[in-house]
């Protein structure tokens, strides 16, 4: 029995050493993201391996890895798991459409803002196609039920700007869509980019015509890093500034939208097309 155990342990150590050797070639930047959120990060089913992860945040991750001279490895996991992974130091960072919140700033290192087109700049309400354009003002929304994703920017916006509405909190956008159809609430608060993606694929959903007033600090996304990696955070901020100066954000966003099958709403100069 002892012998068997010893042999098993040796084998395990050997495997570990071999695995360790093979990974020591080039430094790898591990980035966690939740690829179920077009156009920010999603899966292109026609591709395999690491190439299948596409979207704005993936372009950004590639750019950061390139600038750092590292090899990018995307670690896909659920949105919750992304935060856990960064907190535990299992990944170097997470780029997954995070908005700035006070709680996050307390527990993580957050980068400077980056702007993914109209995804976070504009926050809107969507509704059933038969109610399209019915709820354009705060007054027309009074007394209605409004859905928003839990712990999201949309939830805080609803509380802040639609005090006369009854807020219904939902777990994720897919469930929210089903609930909207079910009549659990009349309108659903989403970022415009996500709303566009939903409407492009669901003919029974339409914009309500209402837009939230979005405070400057909410309009960007941030990269989530471990509390202890100050050095990397500083480097990421430098890289973000460089990308912004080079005007890369709009290119990436248009690419992501085109891949996701959403009509591109900006021209090359960054002006919105009507």
């Amino acid at each position: 029995m002892k012998k068997v155990f010893a042999i098993a342990l040796t084998a395990l150590l050997l495997v570990g050493m071999l695995a360790g050797c093979s990974s020591a070639k080039k430094e790898v930047l591990t980035v966690a993201l939740s690829p179920d959120f077009a156009p920010m990060e999603f899966v292109d089913a026609t591709k395999t391996g690491q190439d299948k992860y596409v979207g704005f945040d993936v372009s950004l991750a590639k750019y950061i890895a390139e600038e750092l001279g590292m090899e990018l490895e995307i670690k896909p996991m659920s949105f919750d798991a992304c935060q856990t992974a960064v907190g535990l130091g299992n990944v170097d960072m997470s780029i997954s459409g995070f908005s700035w919140t006070e709680d996050r700033a307390e527990n993580y290192n957050l980068s400077d803002y980056y702007h993914a087109g109209d995804n976070e700049d504009e926050q809107t309400l969507i509704t059933l196609a038969e109610n399209a354009g019915k709820y354009e003002t705060v007054e027309s929304l009074a007394g209605l039920k409004v859905g928003a994703q839990t712990a999201s920017l949309q939830e805080s916006l609803c509380k802040e700007q639609l005090p006369d509405c009854e807020l219904v909190v939902v777990a994720d956008l897919t469930t929210a869509l089903m609930q909207l159809r079910n009549g659990d609430f009349d309108v659903l608060a989403v970022a415009k980019g996500n709303g566009d993606a939903i409407i492009a694929n669901n003919s029974d959903i339409a914009p309500s015509g209402f837009f939230f007033e979005v405070d400057e600090k909410y309009t960007g996304n941030v990269v989530l890093l471990n509390k202890e990696s100050d050095e990397l955070t500083a480097k990421v901020n430098e890289i973000l500034a460089k990308a912004e100066a080079a005007g890369l954000y709009i290119t990436w966003y248009d690419e992501a939208k085109a891949t996701a099958g959403i009509e591109v709403s900006y021209d090359d100069a960054g002006n919105e097309l009507s």
Binding site: P35, D36, A38, F42, M77, S78, A197, I198, A260
Partner: peptide, 20 residues
């Protein structure tokens, strides 16, 4: 952890199409 099982397929396809 998106290990590629059936439920991962659900997550990725609904994430790209919003047809949950």
């Amino acid at each position: 952890f998106f290990v590629g099982d059936l439920m991962t397929s659900y997550l990725t396809v609904k994430g790209a199409t919003y047809l949950g």
